[in-house]
């Protein structure tokens, strides 16, 4: 059970149960869809970007606790950040969950996202955690196609 608690930390369970920014965003100027064909997780990320700053963000869709909590915490942390800062967080987050330990996350940078470090012990769940970030990335790039973890 101890390993499971590493994965399903209280903060993750909380964001799963009460996801933040879980809605459709009226007036969004960037939207992207993410899909994980392995488990059927679907997410849509809405952004309102102005002067390279993410002024507002929301998400919608269905998925497992890890993907939902990851999306919820992602929206909370990137709101108000510049697009470049958001992309930098994606990179740091990705390294953290894919066990690239050469880049130990700076707690000041990742904040609550550090809760996802436990995901690296569960390789099949890494894609669940990164799906929202891939989708955010696609929205920032303004890509038309559906973001995928594949």
């Amino acid at each position: 059970m101890s390993d499971l608690r590493e994965l399903y930390q209280e903060v993750i369970l909380d964001h799963n149960k009460r996801p933040r920014n879980f809605q459709k965003l009226e007036g969004a100027n960037r939207v992207a869809d993410g899909y994980n064909p392995l488990c059927g997780d679907q997410i849509r990320v809405y952004l309102f970007v102005e002067d390279h700053v993410i002024k507002d963000i929301a998400f919608h869709g269905s998925g497992c606790a890890i993907s939902k909590a990851s999306a919820s915490m992602m929206t909370a942390i990137v709101k108000g950040k510049t697009t470049a800062e958001a992309e930098g967080l994606f990179e740091t987050f990705h390294k953290m969950v894919t066990a690239d330990l050469s880049a130990a996350p700076d707690p000041l940078v990742v904040g609550k996202l550090a809760a996802f470090a436990g995901v690296r012990e569960f390789p099949v769940r890494v894609k669940c955690a990164t799906l929202p970030w891939h989708t955010l990335h696609a929205a920032l790039e303004g890509k038309e196609q559906i973001a995928s973890t594949e």
């Binding site: 390993d3 499971l4 998925g63 497992c64 606790a65 890890i66 769940r125």
Partner: peptide, 11 residues
């Protein structure tokens, strides 16, 4: 979600 069930059962 089914995936969370699967992970916990696997443990």
């Amino acid at each position: 979600h089914a995936h969370d069930i699967g992970t916990i059962l696997d443990q």
